[in-house]
Amino acid sequence: MDEKKKQAYGIGNAILIVLLALTIGEFLLGNFADVWSIVWAPLIAIAVLKAFFVVRDFMHVRRLWTGDEEEHA
């Protein structure tokens, strides 16, 4: 139980670090890249990646088809 708890909190910490790092990355890209015509593509790609992590790990989309047995097993 304690191991599962630790693991669950650890996922939250890891995802937060990834989200903040990607946000700083897109801020730098958006502010210092001069090629407006192509910079939208990596920015959208970063947004999709961030959304993927939030939907998968924070919103637990998997519970839609597995229920929440993992947490209460």
Binding site: T23, E26, F27, L29, G30, N31, W36, V39, W40, L43, I44, I46, A47, K50, A51, V54, V55, F58, M59, H60
Partner: peptide, 22 residues
């Protein structure tokens, strides 16, 4: 929680669209 994260996901796309692209 799911609703709150959804609002976050929306902003993840709005942020580059309004602040960074162009």
């Amino acid at each position: 929680a799911v609703y709150w994260h959804f609002v976050d996901v929306v902003w993840i796309f709005f942020y580059p669209a309004l602040y960074l692209i162009g």
